[in-house]
Simulated scan of single mutants.
Amino acid sequence: MTETPNPNIIDADTLTGEMRPIRRVVIGLGSNLGDRLDNLQGAVEQLGDTPDVWITGVSPVYESTPVDCPPDSGDFLNAVVLADTTLSASRLLDRALAIEDAYDRDRSHGVNAPRTLDVDLIVVGDRRSDTETLKLPHPLAHERAFVLKPWLDLEPDAEFPGMGPVAVLLEKVGAEGLKLRDDLSLAIE
C-alpha cells in the first residue's frame, strides 16, 4: 500500500448513520481447478457486487507453478484486485469465503490443496490481525511472486506493511515459475 487510509475520510451508513473509515484493500485471487479464468472473473464480479466495496484496479493475469502444493497439482492462474471498502476486515473475510464457496472451494484436503478459487485478503488498510481465522497482513504474501508481481503492476510504489516496498520484496523472491498471460484478462464490471 502506498498510503495509510485517512481516518478522516469516512462513509456514513445511510440506514444507521454510522461513520466508517474507507480502507484500501489488496486481494489475491488464484485458481488451479476447473475453468480457471472464469473462476477468477467470477470472483472479480462478485467482489464488485459487494455492497461497500469499490474495485479500483485488477492486475494482469499470471500463471504460476504451485507453491507448497501436493505433487501433480496443476498450474494456477493468479491476479490481484485493489479496492476501497468501508467493511470491517472480518466482514470482508466472510465475503471472500462466501465467494470461494460459490465456486465449490473444497477445504477438506488442506490449505495448499488444488482449488477452484482462492480469495485471500493480503492487506486491509492498516488493520493488523493474528487470530486463527484472520491474519493481516497476509503472513506469506510477501514471499509469493504470484501476489507481489501483479500487485506491483497495479501500484509500482506499493509498500507491504511492515515488510517494505513490494518491488524490493519481489526482487528478493524472484519471479521464477511466474508467467504473464497477456492472452488472458479480467474485466471490472
Results as ranks from 00 to 15, higher is better:
94 D>V: 03
70 P>F: 05
185 S>C: 03
54 W>A: 15
25 V>T: 12
113 A>L: 09
27 I>R: 12
124 V>I: 08
19 M>E: 12
85 T>V: 08
82 L>G: 03
88 S>A: 14
74 G>K: 04
75 D>S: 14
164 G>Y: 11
167 A>G: 14
75 D>N: 15
155 E>K: 07
87 L>T: 02
77 L>Q: 13
95 R>K: 15
64 S>N: 11
156 P>K: 02
157 D>V: 06
72 D>T: 10
170 L>F: 00
35 D>Q: 03
180 L>C: 07
149 K>P: 04
76 F>T: 05
62 Y>L: 07
10 I>Y: 06
8 N>F: 09
188 I>H: 06
74 G>Q: 12
57 G>R: 10
151 W>Y: 05
83 A>R: 08
121 L>H: 12
25 V>M: 15
177 G>E: 06
4 T>G: 02
6 N>H: 08
147 V>M: 04
36 R>H: 01
63 E>H: 03
133 T>M: 00
31 S>Y: 05
136 L>H: 02
181 R>K: 14
142 H>S: 01
99 I>F: 01
109 H>T: 12
93 L>M: 09
58 V>W: 01
89 A>Y: 11
142 H>G: 03
108 S>Y: 12
167 A>S: 15
39 N>K: 01
73 S>N: 14
67 V>T: 00
133 T>Q: 13
119 V>K: 14
114 P>W: 00
60 P>W: 07
72 D>N: 15
32 N>Y: 02
51 P>W: 05
84 D>N: 15
118 D>C: 10
90 S>D: 15
9 I>C: 04
84 D>G: 07
7 P>C: 09
158 A>I: 00
113 A>M: 06
132 E>M: 07
167 A>N: 12
34 G>H: 13
73 S>F: 11
20 R>T: 13
55 I>V: 10
78 N>E: 10
182 D>K: 15
34 G>V: 10
18 E>Q: 15
61 V>E: 06
16 T>Y: 09
92 L>W: 10
123 V>N: 08
83 A>H: 06
107 R>T: 04
33 L>R: 06
53 V>K: 00
171 E>P: 07
183 D>G: 12
105 R>S: 00
189 E>M: 12
136 L>N: 03
188 I>F: 04
164 G>Q: 10
73 S>Q: 11
136 L>S: 04
111 V>A: 11
104 D>I: 02
72 D>Q: 14
129 S>I: 06
151 W>R: 04
122 I>E: 13
69 C>V: 04
74 G>M: 04
70 P>K: 09
85 T>E: 13
102 A>V: 01
131 T>F: 07
120 D>P: 11
27 I>E: 13
90 S>W: 12
55 I>A: 07
47 L>G: 06
29 L>V: 00
101 D>C: 04
86 T>P: 01
119 V>D: 00
129 S>W: 04
145 A>M: 07
52 D>S: 14
13 D>A: 05
163 M>E: 15
153 D>A: 15
129 S>T: 00
56 T>I: 05
180 L>V: 00
